[in-house]
Amino acid sequence: MNLRATRVFSIAALVVFTSVPALSETFSCKEPSSGDRVNRVAGGRDAIPADFPWQVAVRASGRFCGGSLIGRKFILTAAHCVDGLADAKGVLPPSAAVQVSLSNPHGQPAGETSEVKYVLVHNQWAGGASGSPHDIAILVLWSGFDVTDQAIINIPPPAIDPLYASPGTCAVVTGWGAMRVDGPLPERLQVASVPVRTLEECVQAYPAEDIGPNHLCAGYTGGGVDSCQGDSGGPLVVEGGPRGRLQVGVVSWGYGCAEPGRYGVYTRVSSYKKWIEETAARYKDF
């Protein structure tokens, strides 16, 4: 099993995203043929950065992960990306620098950057254990990003999540993760279309793991397209909601990357919507 964080790489120029074009063609899931299978996020496709303005890169004391804008100064990511860095109140010591960057126009994780003030890991996260549930965290930025509402991804409430993230729904996952297990990182943001699986399929894929309703699996039975190391914390998104896109998952873990019968495992974010809203409310005026 591998959690899907990896090591950092460099940052550069500034960018502000202002719109989200139509993405209907992106949400198209088709089981890859054996000749088309590649062990990388995006199934071989470079993303158009402006299509995914909520995507951010998280650099946390030697770890590289993804994340999503859920507010101008709030980032949603995976707990294992930032576990152990902050104290019980979420305060970072001077030695634990955490930065968040937007994509630049070339799709590189080198756009506008902000430092993180608070790291708020879910209190039920089991401290870095592989496959543990509650793999979710919120980062509070010192300085929020100057973006429009379209750059902030919505999260569905639990009551309607099944309507948008039902089994068979085509979702997209984005990130700068490895192109194969322990492989190189891409220069450009990648995007992959992956179908949501049933909870039963997820349990069957990982019978020795603690899979439950707070998880969501996505991928193909034959493998070939998946999130991978370095994509941890990034968003799994479906069509729907007032802005046309909803985040239903946070990249968490899997066995290898894009292996047959081994789906990508995501934290189901609707299960944590109340925690997210309450946490953000406590820190909105820090």
Rank of each mutant, 00 (worst) to 15 (best):
Q190R: 15
G254T: 07
V194N: 10
A281K: 14
P242L: 07
P105H: 07
T221A: 14
S24E: 11
A159S: 07
E201V: 01
D285E: 09
E112C: 07
T26C: 06
Q124M: 09
A110Q: 14
G230V: 02
I160V: 12
N154W: 07
V116K: 04
W142A: 06
D36N: 11
G177S: 02
I70L: 03
Q108T: 14
S68N: 03
F27G: 01
G183M: 10
P162C: 07
W125R: 04
E209G: 06
P93H: 02
V140M: 08
S95T: 15
G249W: 14
D87W: 06
E239F: 08
G241I: 14
R4D: 12
V100I: 01
G254W: 04
D149F: 01
A60E: 05
V91K: 13
V15R: 01
G131E: 01
A88T: 13
T221Y: 00
P207N: 06
V56Q: 03
A47C: 06
A171V: 00
A129E: 11
R262P: 04
E201H: 01
I48G: 01
D87R: 07
I152P: 09
T6Q: 09
P105D: 13
F64W: 07
G168A: 06
V38P: 06
C170W: 09
V116R: 03
K30F: 08
D51K: 10
V265N: 13
A22Y: 15
G254Q: 10
E187C: 01
W54E: 02
S95D: 12
V147G: 00
V194R: 05
I48A: 13
